[in-house]
């Protein structure tokens, strides 16, 4: 529920700030948010663009399939997880595998990372590509972090969006990254 008093106060302060600064100005967050930026990047721009800061490869990972519509990445491979692309945080909370963050990159494309430690980002914050969004921690015995890619709200295989510099690290042996 949005606090109406805070909304009114925020609108007045932002309007005054905009008048004084004469230009696009984000108000209210330590990370400037531009809601129209979701429309600036096309889906085509997102193809083969994701940064997956995987230092130890995807060995032992569980690939995407119809019954498992996400990648499960072992946490012992790296200690931090970064935002795969620029976007805006639209969801954050505690899931079954740990804390999760969902980032909207374009109007149609979003990613969700679940199994990280308490995130420092808030709903509404903007993130840059490669920006750290959380540290990987084990939670209730799990040692994987789940990585989702949503296109128009439907989970899809992340492979088409991963940048070429990271594709070689993806384990494609007997375990297919996408099935």
């Amino acid at each position: 529920m949005v606090n109406l008093y805070r909304v009114r106060t925020r609108i007045l302060s932002c309007a005054l700030a905009i008048l004084l600064n004469a230009g696009t100005l984000g108000c209210g967050s330590q990370n400037q948010v531009d809601p129209l930026s979701l429309g600036e990047t096309s889906l085509t721009d997102m193809l083969y663009n994701f940064s997956l800061n995987v230092t130890g490869g995807f060995a032992g990972s569980v690939g995407y399939s119809a019954s498992h519509p996400y990648w499960s990445i072992p946490t012992n491979s790296f200690t931090t997880f970064v935002s795969p692309a620029a976007g805006i945080v639209v969801e954050s909370g505690l899931g079954s595998r740990g804390y999760f963050v969902k980032i909207q990159h374009t109007g149609r494309l979003a990613t969700r990372i679940e199994g990280i430690g308490l995130p420092t980002l808030r709903i509404g914050d903007s993130v840059a590509r490669g920006q750290t969004i959380g540290n990987l921690v084990g939670f209730s015995g799990y040692d994987f972090v789940d990585f989702y890619v949503f296109l128009d709200g439907v989970s899809v295989c992340p492979m088409s969006f991963v940048h070429s510099s990271f594709r070689s690290t993806i384990f494609t042996g007997s375990l297919q990254a996408c099935q």
Partner: peptide, 21 residues
């Protein structure tokens, strides 16, 4: 004139307003 815009999503406590021409 101008416009104010923000991204509204469930769980948003206060809007981050951005101004435009």
């Amino acid at each position: 004139g101008g416009a104010l815009a923000y991204l509204d999503t469930p769980g948003l406590v206060a809007p981050n307003l951005t101004g435009y021409f």
